[in-house]
Nucleic acid binder design. Structure first.
Length: 581
RNA sequence: GCGCUGAUGGUCUAGUGGCUAUGACUGAGGCCUUCCAAGCCUUAAACCCGGGUUCGAAUCCCGGUCGGCGCACCA
């Protein structure tokens, strides 16, 4: 069994991850999060919220998971998220039709399925594998289609990413943030992609959870006011040049910006923030690197893009976060499709005085004279120069017709106006997290098997322990009466209640020997166990046991909930928690 | 989607054309038990689905589903 199998086996057995629809035989690409998995995932999401929503101030929104066609036409998913496939009639192998003809025609990826079929037929292209005849080309789109409303209804799609919600709401968000850049919004939610062949557990799912931030910034100012927070962080950077050499390099983020390796400060800040988040939830620093997209793999509109990659035993480096400067591409695309201006008014630091030539047609006179053509005439007049307008009679061309306009009908002047700002289209910085992949990585990095001394002289035993960070552990405290006796159970239940009251995640377990229960809790990563024994009845103290060191301290029942809270959230030292045993 | 390969209680597993399908761990109940998977008793729980061959199929054949690997696809 490799580590992946061990982790998945444990995850299944202890209620972290289950195959979906198991009693019906299961379906590839879908997973259920069990009670502990669901809780662990929520803890990870909650820390993400603390990082992006609370700390950075990028407020969370919630847009529908079903989107209408226009949204994905603008985003490019309707056209670009599908591939033209054709299958061999004899061996059944599927091929990208555009790849088959790209040596024959110049712009193969721009052709439709019918054109591709024509090119294939005309050039009598056969199956590259078996020379067999190729079938008709069809579009395979990775988006799940659905209908909105009854009957044929309106075409809808399950969203393939959460990002579009923030773009579509741009104007509302801009107003919410009182029209000041930079601002950002986030969304944590499900996305859907009808993967051809989902594999590798939760690494590639058909329904998955994303956490994305879209941060709108001034294209002329990509500095970050708090960059100093991360400037001295040393990260594993696998830049484009480093990839040519084949080894990542350790570098300060500040240095990477100075040397132009990372495009700008704002992006570097986001890389620093991602690094902070991933380590905070328990990703091992030495199994984390940031890989830059090479020019040819990066989307054409992007300026720079870095993926956070986590090393796993079976899958090697897995991409878990993409951090990109997408420029104004998305806003421009939605502006074009929706015919809505998506820009923000930016005031200059000092107003500028601009002198310009202004033409003012007198519409009150133009109207009766030209009727329906008046508007076009006015537009034509505005395009004329001062010289043209000073003629005694002015001629304009409207719909290939020469019209003569009396010169008293139009006024013009050189005006000096004050311009105090302009409309700009912000650039978008997008950190995009795949939560399911991060969830698995967290489990794999926390997973440990270790030898512990057996009782008396017996052989060493192995212990499975999930060294989850205390903050993310799905059970934070286990309440364990030493023996299954009524007189111990009663005070145990009341201690349990007081700790629940404090808001900690508690489990109560009185079945089996104490050792067995400690091991059960080690396996799910419970950081602390509280054991109630007969001394508790005499002096009102309990034993607290630390998961990682297996050490124990004795602490009073009075204030136990506060003490545990400090141990879990305030990094209180375990040794100072009570009298060592 | 193609090729190879596998599928037995919750988990891991034995098994083979033929009595009531093996074992361990786990789970539940109990006895015992004052701190790291101890012991004893009781108990629950499985042959992926559909078709075929056969007197008889968990076992052989075909198809499907799911998992793993490779290809293709994908971020």
């Amino acid at each position: 069994m490799d580590r992946y199998e061990k982790v998945i086996e444990l995850a299944k057995r202890r209620g972290f991850l289950w195959n979906s629809f198991e009693i019906y035989g299961g379906t590839a690409g879908f997973y259920d999060y069990g009670p502990l998995g669901s809780t662990l995932k929520r803890r990870i999401e909650q820390i993400w919220r603390e990082t992006y929503v609370i700390r950075e101030g990028y407020m969370e929104i919630e847009a529908p998971t079903i989107g209408i066609e226009e949204v994905f036409i603008a985003s490019g998913h309707v056209g670009g998220f599908s591939d033209p496939l054709c299958e061999c009639k004899s061996c059944g192998e599927a091929f990208r039709a555009d790849h088959l003809v790209d040596k024959i025609v110049a712009c193969a990826d721009g052709l439709g399925t019918k054109e591709l079929d024509r090119v294939i037929k005309e050039n009598s292209i056969s199956c590259p594998e078996c020379e067999g005849e190729l079938g008709e080309t069809y579009e395979f789109n990775l988006m799940f289609k659905t209908n909105v409303g009854p009957g044929s209804g309106r075409q809808g799609y399950m969203r393939p990413e959460t990002a579009q919600g923030m773009f579509v709401d741009f104007l509302r968000l801009a107003r919410f943030y009182r029209d000041k850049l930079p601002f950002g919004a986030t969304q944590i939610g499900k996305s859907y992609r009808n993967e051809i062949s989902p594999r590798q557990g939760v690494i590639r799912l058909r329904e998955f959870t994303q956490a994305e931030a879209e941060i709108f910034i001034d294209p002329n100012n990509k500095k970050h006011p708090n960059f100093h927070r991360f400037a001295d962080n040393v990260l594993n950077l696998y830049s484009e040049q480093a990839q040519e050499r084949g080894t990542a390099e350790q570098m300060r983020l500040g240095e990477a910006v100075e040397k132009g390796i990372i495009a700008h400060e704002f992006l570097a800040y986001q890389i620093g923030l991602t690094n902070y988040f991933l380590q905070r939830i328990g990703i091992a620093a030495d199994k984390l690197r940031f890989r830059q997209h090479k020019k040819d793999e990066m989307a054409h509109y992007a300026i720079d893009c870095w993926d956070a990659e986590i090393e796993t035993e079976r899958f090697a480096w897995v991409e878990v976060v993409g951090i990109a400067d997408r420029t104004d591409y998305d806003l421009k695309a939605h502006a074009a499709v929706s015919k809505t201006e998506l820009s923000i008014y930016k005031e200059y630091s000092e107003p500028r005085m601009v002198t310009r030539f202004v033409v003012k047609p007198n519409m009150g006179k133009l109207g009766p004279l030209f009727k329906g053509k008046a508007k076009d005439v006015a537009e034509a007049l505005k395009a004329l120069s001062q010289e043209d307008l000073e003629q005694d009679s002015i001629t304009v061309m409207v719909d290939d017709e020469a019209l003569t306009v009396p010169n008293d009908i139009v006024e013009f002047a050189e005006e000096t106006v004050k311009i105090s700002g302009e409309n700009i289209i912000p650039h978008v910085i997008e950190p995009s997290y795949g939560i399911d992949r991060i969830f698995y990585s967290t489990m794999e990095h926390a997973f440990a098997e270790e030898k512990v001394a057996g009782k008396d002289d017996s052989e060493d035993e192995s212990r499975i322990v999930m060294r989850l960070r205390k903050e993310v552990a799905p059970v934070q405290v286990a309440i364990l009466p030493l023996l299954t006796r009524e007189e111990l159970i009663k005070p145990s239940r009341s201690i349990e209640a007081s700790i629940r009251q404090k808001g900690l995640l508690v489990s109560y377990d009185d079945s089996g020997t104490i050792g067995r229960r400690y091991r059960r809790n080690d396996e799910i990563g419970t950081p602390y166990s509280v054991t109630i024994d007969y001394n508790t009845l005499e002096d009102n103290t309990v034993t607290i046991r630390d998961r990682d060191s297996m050490k124990q301290v004795r602490a009073p029942v009075e204030g136990i909930a506060d003490l545990l809270y400090e141990l879990i959230y305030m990094e209180k030292d375990f040794k100072s928690a009570g009298k060592a045993l």
